[in-house]
Design a protein around this nucleic acid. Structure first.
Lengths: 341, 341
DNA sequence: AAGCGTCTGATAGACGCCTATCAGGAATTG
DNA sequence: CAATTCCTGATAGGCGTCTATCAGACGCTT
């Protein structure tokens, strides 16, 4: 049994290829009993249209749009780079990818950007704020027939087709367990620095972290969250203050960006070796600090994988093909000094 | 700038499409200066052949062969399953994948299997023993024009085109660091159970583990390796003996398979909570033990990813297309109770 | 019975590339 | 200069699917 072609199916069903095509692509009305015959033939021959030939024939461009936060931190920059890399790579496959930047923290502006997405696009991938106005804009997009995929940070109650990113509450729990085990038996305080609390990913991490800390490690006292707004300079000030306030601080978890600031504060305060520091996202800064030993663990999400996954999902949706769930699961990468790539 | 076709190139270079094709596929002799003109045109137009169209036109089947250990453990079983899944999925893309089982621990038999690989195959992926006889067989295969990819366990000095798998010495180091940190400050003994020491992957893990243990954690005493031969029952006996011999054992690292046996030994000995147990490969057994808390950390390599990566690499080689290195890096997955998929 | 709409068949022409063949011109040889 | 060999152009046909069009066949309405 090699590969059946559309002609084999036509013959098997006793109809013409045109009719097979009509039932396959719902091109025109086909009498139910004829359609039935065709479908039976398809099943009997285990026919699967050749995707290569189909895409060639359709001669269709796929147009996708990625919407990322503007300015922003090292991780978002690497996401943007990954998008551009893939845009180049996919160009030869007739996939056009545009990259838009906007202030995702401003719900109005993000929503306006989404509203302005033209019908030229088959799909949109967006780092989205979980806000009613944004949710509404996402739903409107979906309504207009544009496939929407949320990236990195989800908007669960919206009509987005898929979420590409890690399970952030699992990431928070993981951080907590590692923190607790690294500090096993010791008593002391653990600090938590958050980025902005408007993106859902950070909230979920925090939630997961607090949950496990409270439940599993009563020997550790979790201090109230301090906000660093994902800005390196601000984060550094916050961290310095935190260290000064709590000489008995033995653990620090940074939910957001700007880890470089914390590393600097730890080093300048001479506390780099005494405080277990866990943070997110592998960047030049954090990699260096991990090697130095200032950072103990980095929890990472692979920007390249996320972008490629988003593209695969968008293409599948455009082709109305099913996606392979387990292939699209974005994993929580844990990096120690020993396994950095 | 849409996409240039072969005709555009022909026009730009002032030659016929036939000549462009000859240059592209080295089909026949072309005068150097003509080839030069064509190549310039290609660069000027940034022409890239449409891979879809090319594959369609070639109407060529790719035939690959996977060689895995027979019988064997849960991980190898899941590898085999992944191969079969992908074989089904790739069938529609004119990729035929055969799966062979052999005793990879028997160098002669493995080599014989490799020698018997016919020229029908474009590529072979093999879980290989690092042994002169095997290396020779791999080289002979490569010589015959069959692309060889090593899977899970490498044979570095051979002429294999690529190694698909994790950096096992990094994995061993990672295990050691986690072990050391989980046991921070405590003194005691740490046991190491190896599978068979004929596959290179296990040796490398052991090496990495010992290295970091010796260097970074002088408070811990690493006991001599015990071999479990990757067999659950044998491993259990070995573990029971180890626990009996050393009441002050506080850490255990299993390099190979058969973790279920160790988990059973720990539980029956009532030591499950007292001993930090780190092992490899996420299976039904280890997943359960991780949730129970008997296993503290699982270091995993994703069988599905490995198989898909191997296929991508083999296809790229068959097409003489470059591979995207960083896309083919197999990551060391670290699973805690909190982030199991 | 004429007119209508609904369903189906047949077929041509893409899509971009590969393969093969043939013929003729250019360059080389003796 | 004739006889080869080497290069190149032109072109046909195919890979499996999609798109579009046209012509019938059929059943139904009036």
């Amino acid at each position: 049994m090699v590969k059946a072609t559309i002609e084999d199916v036509a013959e098997e069903a006793g109809v013409s290829v045109a009719t097979v095509d009509r039932v396959l692509n719902g091109r025109a009305a086909v009498r139910p009993q004829t359609a039935e015959r065709v479908e039976k033939a398809i099943r009997r021959l285990n026919y699967q249209p050749d995707r290569l030939a189909a895409r060639l024939a359709r001669a269709r461009e796929y147009r996708f749009c990625f919407i990322l936060p503007e300015g922003s931190n090292a991780f978002m920059t690497s996401l943007a780079e990954a998008v551009q890399d893939e845009a180049l790579r996919m160009a030869r496959e007739k996939v056009v990818i545009d990259l838009l930047h906007t202030d995702v923290f401003d719900a109005q502006q993000l929503a306006a950007t989404l509203d302005a997405i033209g019908p030229v696009y088959d799909g949109v991938a967006v780092v989205a704020l979980d806000h009613p106005r944004v949710r509404e804009a996402l739903n409107a997009l979906a309504e207009r027939g544009v496939t929407v995929v949320t990236l990195v940070s989800d908007v669960p109650s919206s009509r987005r087709a898929h979420y590409v990113g890690i399970d952030n509450s699992a990431a928070g729990r993981t951080a907590a367990t590692l923190m607790g085990r690294y500090l096993s038996g010791r008593r002391g305080k653990v600090g938590l620095i958050a980025g902005s609390l408007s993106l859902r990913d950070h909230i979920e991490r925090q939630f997961g972290f607090e949950q496990v800390m409270a439940h599993d490690f009563p020997n550790l006292t979790l201090l109230p969250v301090r906000e660093g707004r994902d800005d390196r300079a601000k984060v550094q000030v916050v961290a310095e203050q935190l260290l000064a306030d709590h000489p008995d601080l033995i653990g620090l978890y940074n939910v957001g960006a700007g880890s470089g600031g914390i590393a600097a504060a730890l080093e300048q305060g001479g506390r780099a070796r005494d405080v277990v520091f866990i943070t997110h996202e592998l960047t030049d800064d954090t990699r260096r600090a991990l090697i130095d030993g200032t950072i103990d663990i980095i929890i990472n999400q692979d920007a390249g994988h996320e972008v490629r996954s988003a593209i695969r999902v968008l293409m599948s949706k455009a082709d109305r093909a099913p996606i392979v769930e387990q292939m699209e699961r974005i994993r929580i990468d844990i990096y120690l000094r020993d396994n950095i790539p």
